[in-house]
């Protein structure tokens, strides 16, 4: 898709996201902030699944690394700056992703998936067992950070802060991440990843160094997810080993499938919708996991291309019919 065509739909959505906190209650805005954070993570995840053909079941690891990097910076370095949090999360996720990626990209298909899952579980068990460092199941608390060097006003309501100042911060990072990812997937590098996804042998025989490209994709993917983790933890106020546990990786996969992983916007839509869906499902029934499971099964059977893929299909059919 060309830059012009992309901007035609991207600009109105950005404007809508900008005015939303002024017209809706803080609670849905905070939920949207969660959705945008997760969208960054799923965008990163989808660089591997949708564009490189690698299904990671271990993206909770990089999300957790981002979140715990922030928590450690607060606990041990007494850092309060959100910019430093993001920077620290990027450095930490580069280190961990480089290590995990070096091992994982040697494999594909189920072997890759299982390896990513196993490595993420290692991190989870470390966070769980080394409680004197990580806080164990109690987790680590992260107070309200300074945004662009500005601390929250004395007595400012935290809900108001999260629904306004912090929301706009998340939105700005989200826009930067979306723009960067859009550029990456539309670059010659992005094309090479799609080539690897479609036919590894042919990609190799046009001179693409498969493992090296997979490694870079893995690294970029992990860093995006790490940034999401860093943004998530001040929103949540606390990080616990739950975000390193495999069901959280499953949620990231769910979001990508829900939105549609074969198009650029699918993961964004999937993350935002999933977040609302989960929140309301949790409020609706104690059996919310079963409900979500049913939704996933129905979704895969009825909308295999996800929400965005199906919407595109409907739009194409409608256009054809109108043209007749």
């Amino acid at each position: 898709m060309s830059v012009k065509k992309t901007l035609i739909w991207a600009v109105p959505i950005a404007v809508l996201l900008l005015v939303l906190p002024q017209v809706v209650d803080p609670y849905p805005t905070i939920l949207l902030a969660y959705g945008l954070v997760m969208a960054i993570a799923v965008l990163g995840f989808n660089l591997l699944l949708g564009y490189t053909g690698l299904l990671s079941f271990g993206h909770s690891a990089y999300f957790g690394v981002g979140a715990y990097a922030v928590a450690f910076m607060v606990k041990y370095l007494h850092v309060q700056s959100m910019e430093l949090f993001v920077l620290g999360a990027i450095v930490a996720s580069i280190l961990v992703t480089a290590l995990f990626g070096y091992v994982c990209v040697r494999y594909t298909k189920i072997f890759f998936s299982i390896l990513t899952l196993a490595l993420s579980q290692v991190l989870w068990s470390l966070a769980f067992k080394f409680f004197w460092v990580t806080g164990g199941t109690d987790g680590l608390r992260v107070p309200t950070p300074k945004l662009l060097g500005v601390a929250t006003a004395e007595g400012e309501d935290k809900i108001y802060f999260l629904a306004h100042g912090y929301y706009y911060y998340v939105l700005a990072v989200f826009v930067i991440c979306v723009a960067l990812m859009w550029l990456i997937v539309h670059s010659p590098f992005g094309k090479a990843l799609q080539a690897i996804r479609d036919n590894e042998t042919r990609a190799r025989f046009i001179g693409i160094r498969i493992r090296r490209y997979r490694f870079v994709a893995f690294l970029v993917s992990g860093v995006f997810t790490g940034i999401a983790g860093a943004l998530w933890v001040p929103l949540n106020g606390l990080t616990t080993p739950d975000i390193l546990y495999w069901p959280f990786s499953g949620e990231i996969v769910f979001m990508a499938v829900l939105g549609g992983f074969r198009n650029f916007t699918g993961p964004i839509v999937g993350a935002v919708v999933f977040n609302y869906l989960k929140t309301y499902a949790v409020g609706f029934t104690v059996y919310w996991q079963a409900l979500m499971g049913v939704i996933l099964v129905v979704l895969v059977m009825t909308l295999p291309t996800g929400i965005v893929g199906s919407a595109k299909l409907v739009y194409a059919v409608a256009r054809r019919r109108l043209a007749k």
Binding site: V3, L180, L183, I184, H186, S187, P188, F189, G190, K191, A192, I206, G207, I208, Y213, V216, V220
Partner: peptide, 13 residues
Amino acid sequence: SREGMTRRLFSLA
């Protein structure tokens, strides 16, 4: 690939 351009992450194909 022949021109070594697939290494470019931040330029539009």
